[in-house]
Nucleic acid binder design. Structure first.
Length: 423
RNA sequence: CGGGGCGUAGUGCAACGGCAGCACGAGUCCUUUGGGAGGAUUUAAUCCCGGUUCAAAUCCGGGCGCCCCGACCA
């Protein structure tokens, strides 16, 4: 992508300090734009990062044998009434309609997923079934806050699994628990994520949350000093002792809930009389689990935990582009043309080699401004080509967040980027 | 939903009840080019409704909006 054509510009000035630091950086860097409280537009770079996250998650869901679908966002009142949530789920945006039928915008999709799968899953032979979607969710939060971390509209991956025996149900739950860690590791935030025992809310006694530790988080979690077991504050008072090892010392930390998994039992299958024929002809109750990851929240979390004073530092797998190629203008027109020509070729070659490149081809911008933008935008590698480096047929390569930079021959860039580790 | 703060050029801020100003940005021209360059010039604003007043960005009432703390959080 040519930076000269990127319509979303960066801002040099710090934003007022009342928002979370990661949110300020995403806004300054032009990744997102606020439309209203808790409602954000994804700008080109932000969308690219979000798509990288989506790709990671979808790939892992596919690996887990889940089938991707897309459920409607407009959910009829009767579905919510079947589960009793039309009145109890207070975050529902209820939609006015000219028709008699009433709707609510999807805040979660148990009420769609259960009757949908029910239509096709009639026999024990059809189970287990896992379906997932990546879709915008709508929740009328009393207080939206911290940018992408708690919005009224956000992108979520929700997976629903259906089983006819408890053992299978439990083992799939454990499988997804592991896969969630693989997802957070791939997204570059795994080091901060703690599996946390939490309340099941209206669903079940317990659930498991994936909590990313950062001071910007709105949840408080407690780590057992002896064994590391983590519980959410909401159930901490029920456990003066660690439920795992009996330890009594805990350390406290703020965290962002980036994922949550629940065993639902028959909570959402029973209201729809979702049962399946068993081997002996008797109907069996269908057990259901649900598993969520907030994609936009995960993006906000990455911005929150991976940054420095100068800007964002994107984990490689979710960076909009791996490389940020910067051309510095030379005063001599002939040299300048030579530099630009070389830069253009590098840009093309890297893309052909499958390396994403943001090319800062802007004219009339000082070196300082370009470097400042590169730090702010936070692509993993910065490549500088200038009068200085072209004289040696080289570019200067630096890792974002690292200290050293290296001169690399133009011919060797591709190889260097794929193999070399910079400090 | 309770509490607090704020609402002025595109952005960030200023202005005693009395001519709305500064910085950044953006446009044009010239000079510059390895950590956010310089000069000249131009551009552009008081959230909405009502009230008090000779006079309101400023005071009062109401509304709307944004941020923060708390409560809430499938």
């Amino acid at each position: 992508m040519l930076q000269s054509r990127l319509f979303a510009k960066t801002r040099k000035e710090e934003l007022p300090g009342e928002m979370s630091a990661g949110t300020r950086l995403l806004l300054r860097a032009g990744f997102i734009d606020q439309t209203a409280a808790g409602i954000y537009a994804m700008l080109p770079l932000g969308l690219l990062a979000l798509q990288k996250i989506e790709k990671i998650i979808a790939g892992k869901m596919d690996e887990a044998g889940a089938q991707r679908i897309l459920m409607p966002a407009l959910v009829p009142k009767k579905n919510w009434e079947a589960s009793g949530r039309w009145n109890s789920l207070d975050v529902l945006y209820k939609v006015e309609s000219r028709q008699k039928t009433e709707y609510a915008l999807g805040a979660t999709h148990e009420e769609i997923a259960a009757p949908l799968v029910q239509k096709f899953a009639l026999s024990y032979k059809d189970f287990p079934i896992a379906v997932y979607q990546i879709q915008t969710k709508f929740r009328d939060e009393l207080r939206a806050k911290s940018g992408l971390l708690r919005g009224r509209e956000f992108l979520m991956k929700d997976l629903y699994s259906f089983h006819i025996d408890q053992k299978d149900c439990d083992s799939y739950y454990e499988k997804i628990k592991q896969i969630y860690f693989e997802i957070f590791n791939a997204a570059g935030v795994g080091h901060a994520v703690h599996l946390t025992l939490a309340s099941g809310g209206s669903f079940s006694k317990f659930s498991h949350e994936f909590q990313a530790a950062t001071s910007a988080g709105e949840d408080t979690i407690y780590h057992c000093a002896a064994c590391g077991f983590t519980v959410n504050r909401e159930i901490k008072e029920d456990y003066p002792q660690c439920p795992e090892c009996g330890g009594e010392e805990f350390s406290e930390e703020k965290a962002i809930e980036v994922g949550n998994i629940f065993k639902l039992g028959t909570r959402y299958s029973a209201p729809f009389s979702f049962e399946a024929a068993g081997q002996d002809g008797q109907n069996l109750p269908v057990l259901m689990n649900c598993y969520g990851i907030g994609l936009t929240r995960l993006m906000g979390t990455a911005a929150e935990i991976s940054r420095d004073d100068a800007g964002l530092i994107w984990p490689e797998n979710i960076a909009p582009f791996f490389a940020h190629l910067i051309v510095l203008e030379a005063k001599d027109g002939e040299t300048d043309a030579k530099i630009r020509s070389a830069a253009g070729k590098i840009y093309d070659d890297l893309q052909k080699a499958g390396i994403g490149v943001l090319y800062d081809d802007r004219r009339q911008k000082s070196a300082g401004e370009k470097f400042g933008d590169a730090d702010l935008l936070g692509m993993p590698r910065r490549l500088v080509i200038s009068e200085k480096t072209i004289a040696k047929d080289s570019v200067e390569i630096k890792k974002r967040g690292g200290k050293e930079s290296k001169l690399v021959k133009i011919k060797e860039i591709d190889n260097f980027l794929k193999n070399e580790n910079l400090g």
